[in-house]
Design a protein around this nucleic acid. Structure first.
Length: 758
DNA sequence: CGGACCCTAAACACCC
DNA sequence: TGGGTGTTTAGGGTCC
């Protein structure tokens, strides 16, 4: 059971794939439901709903971008595509979001880059939230003014009625409780005036309270967002800067704070508990200076239009709204008619809420597609029954929905960034260069030009160029004042790197970067960039076990680890390996034993494992070459089809090398990479220099130097390819070659024993 | 279709 | 005896 869940987590199980298809292919409405939450369609939009709308809008914008990129590549008639006779050697599958499962994308996309888009989404949310609050305040002021006027008018009317002769006055009369007296009292102008004043006073007080609450709410939200690093305001203390780290759970945290869904966090707490924000998430509800409970109750009172608080019911009400909102995601389509909910009938439309007749996004092939369920249901009726029974609105379902929401958002952002990366790659490789494109334009394939030049034109000279993967596709999600500038994006990534490096005892910042530079491996750089992501997200790392083991060993101070230390490294570095230990530990042992590159050394304190780098290089797999055909296959294999996790890992590993090899020849890419690491301009080419001149990039560790018992393994495959690697490296270094055509590209950068370069 | 790679699972042996 | 460690085999998946 554990084993099954282990392998199913990131693999492309039918249920998961169907889950994606339901996400993207069930059309309609792009979340036409979430705006008009149940029973609250009285014209008022709660802040919760507003956040829903903003997130949905941002998501739709990202989808639109992805789709346009795909269509821009796909349709040869778009723009200047005809000018270039060269066909894009990229499978459209990668750019077709409908065909990519979340698990696959999680494995292939670099998570560090998706954060920028997330930031922008949240910035948009923030801005519109502010606008909403402003409107609410104005409306409240207006209402208050109106009430005051009415009060004056009412007073005037009461006075007039008091002096009118038809109504007998009761002044001075002893009060009694008879029905006649009560009726007479009701007719009394004094009583009427008193009641009127009471009502007016109450209303006025309520409005004033609402106004105050609104202001407080706005302040709290801004502060909360700022505290979480969602906005680039100056932090007021170091802790805030630390908390500016953007992790995948940030949006959820935001949602939590807004919606008041306080339970069902267990599924994520474990992932977040290692970070400061995780602690903050769980502890500052009482210690924070921003009382979230007040926020919640305020929201609820505003939302429900009542001042008495029923926290539990409200909580479930919000859960219900969350559920509906998330359900709308699964039914959202990528079709053009659904991309812009605001312009296509609006998100408040609930016309698409009803389930499809005869089909259900969570039902297919006779089984429930709820994540992790796969219960067999003969027909739709049985499925509905099962859905209502097993997946009712409870903490567990809510948590699962939120996890799925997080997954979807991450994947959306990751896909956009990887698409941008692909474009930059193709541009750089003179395959089909394109200029930095805004979101609302298809991939623009111009003449074989210079992306670098355009980039230098696009960004002010004083500002550092943002990371290529985060620059162009991020900003134009929505034009307007809320667009995050490239510099702010950069500062974000910069601060993230810093905050992570400070917040984690192991130091994923400079230390990790040094290690990455030291070994110059794609896995090292990838891990250095996305260390926090893999630590917190239950995502299978796109590396083979052998690569991970090797990295763990090389990362050790003395480049040797015991098996248990390797285990610990896996669990420490990857949330994915914190469960299903039997499976991956067995795999680790299997790899250690099987691969010749791992050498067991009898130490005084037991056996340790070391890496024979020469053997590791020898056993390098063939050959994810850079030829366009293979690149195409690689990409299509990564983002498409039923590639299993293992091969995806291998291919992704190769692809990472390939992508990183761009940095070797592309200074801007190297700069971008380094900036992601929080390096300055002076460090731009340090990696390149280390690779090209230092020659000590990849530490070859001979087992003989340990002088102990060494078990020599026989590995069937012995490939002689070093010479070719060297020649290819030389070619690449000269920059005359778009892509290596014959050789495993991963040797280009780092994993080649660099003494052969000399 | 075969070879190569990777992963998972499992059996087995050894040692503490 | 049980758990950890290490080895080996088998089978499945994907790609070239």
């Amino acid at each position: 059971m554990m084993v099954e869940s282990a392998s199913e987590t990131t693999r492309t199980t039918p249920s998961n794939q169907n889950g994606v298809s339901s996400l993207s292919s069930h059309s309609d409405g792009g979340g036409g439901r979430e705006g008009g939450s149940n029973g609250d369609t009285n014209g008022e939009i709660s802040p919760v709903d507003l956040l829903h709308l903003q997130q949905q809008q941002a998501l739709q914008a990202a989808r639109q971008f992805l789709l346009q990129q795909a269509s821009g590549l796909n349709s040869p008639s778009s723009n200047e595509v005809k000018q270039s006779p060269v066909q894009v050697p990229v499978s459209m599958a990668m750019l077709t979001p409908q065909m990519i499962s979340p698990q696959q994308m999680q494995q292939i996309l670099s998570p560090a880059q998706l954060q920028a888009l997330l930031q922008q989404q949240q910035a948009i949310m923030l801005q519109q939230l502010q606008e909403y609050y402003k409107k609410q305040q104005e409306q409240l002021h207006l209402q208050l003014l109106t009430q005051q006027q009415q009060q004056q008018a009412g007073k005037q009317a009461a006075k007039e009625s008091l002096h009118s002769p038809g109504v007998p006055g009761l002044r001075g009369r002893k009060r009694s409780n008879t029905a006649e007296d009560l009726e007479a009292r009701r007719c009394s102008p004094y009583w009427l005036e008193w009641v009127w004043q009471q009502q007016i006073g109450n209303k006025q007080l309520a409005f004033q309270q609402q106004l105050i609450q609104m202001q407080q709410l706005q302040q709290q939200h801004i502060l909360n967002l700022q505290r979480q690093g969602l906005v680039s305001l100056q932090p007021t203390n170091p802790m805030q800067s630390l908390q500016q780290a953007m992790c995948p759970g940030d949006l959820q945290q935001l949602w939590k704070e807004v919606s008041g869904v306080q339970s069902a966090e267990e599924a994520l707490k474990q992932q977040q508990q290692q970070t400061g924000e995780g602690l903050d998430l769980s502890t500052n509800s009482t210690s924070s200076s921003f009382p979230k409970a007040n926020t919640h109750s305020t929201l609820h009172s505003l939302h429900n239009g009542q001042s008495n608080h029923t926290p539990k019911r409200d909580r479930y009400r919000d859960r219900a709204r969350l559920f509906e909102w998330i359900s709308s995601f699964s039914k959202a389509d990528l079709g053009d008619e659904h991309l812009m909910p605001y312009t296509k009938g609006g998100p408040l439309s609930s016309s698409h809420h009803e389930e499809h007749a005869g089909s259900h996004p969570l039902y297919g092939h006779g089984e429930c597609k709820w994540p992790g369920c796969e219960a067999l249901c003969d027909d739709m009726g049985q499925f509905i029954k099962h859905l209502n029974n097993e997946h009712a609105l409870d903490d567990r379902s809510t948590a699962q929905c939120r996890v799925q929401m997080q997954v979807v958002q991450q994947l959306e952002i990751q896909l956009s960034k990887e698409s941008e990366r692909l474009q930059a790659m193709m541009t750089h490789l003179h395959m089909r260069p394109s200029e930095p494109k805004p979101f609302n334009q298809p991939l623009n394939l111009a003449s074989s030009g210079s992306l670098l030049k355009r980039e230098s034109e696009a960004y002010p000279e004083g500002l550092p160029h943002p990371p290529t993967s985060a620059a162009a596709p991020i900003t134009p999600v929505r034009q307007g004042p809320s667009v995050i500038s490239s510099s702010s994006l950069h500062s974000h990534s910069h601060s993230h790197s810093h905050s992570h490096s400070h917040s984690h005892p192991h130091g994923v910042g400079p230390i990790r970067r040094r290690i990455a530079d030291k070994f110059c491996t794609p896995i090292a750089s990838e891990l250095a960039q996305n260390c926090e992501f893999y630590k917190n997200a239950d995502v299978r790392p796109p590396f083979t076990y052998a690569s991970l083991i090797r990295h763990a060993i090389l990362e050790a101070p003395d480049m040797q680890l015991t098996l248990n230390e390797i285990y610990n490294w896996f669990t420490r570095m990857f949330a994915y390996f914190r469960r299903n230990t039997a499976t991956w530990k067995n795999a680790v042992r299997h790899n250690l034993s099987l691969h010749k590159c791992f050498v067991r050394v009898e130490n005084v304190k037991g056996a340790v494992w070391t890496v024979d780098e020469v053997e590791y290089q020898k056993r390098r797999p063939p050959k994810m070459t850079g030829s366009p055909t293979l690149v195409k296959n690689m990409i299509s294999g990564l983002g498409f089809g039923s590639l299993n996790a293992s091969y995806q890992a291998a291919l992704a590993e190769s692809s990472l090398t390939l992508l990183n090899s761009q940095g070797l020849v592309n200074p801007s890419s190297a700069a971008s990479l380094n900036m992601l690491h929080g390096m300055g301009h002076n460090d731009v080419s340090s990696t390149v220099e280390q690779v090209n001149s230092n020659g000590s990039c990849s530490p070859t560790l001979s087992p003989q130097q340990y002088g102990h018992q060494v078990h020599v393994k026989e590995e069937p495959t012995e490939v002689e390819e070093d010479r070719r690697s060297v020649s290819l490296m030389a070619t690449i270094t000269h920059g005359n070659m778009a892509l290596p055509s014959d050789r495993d590209d991963r040797d280009l950068e780092d994993e080649l024993p660099t003494d052969e370069l000399e």
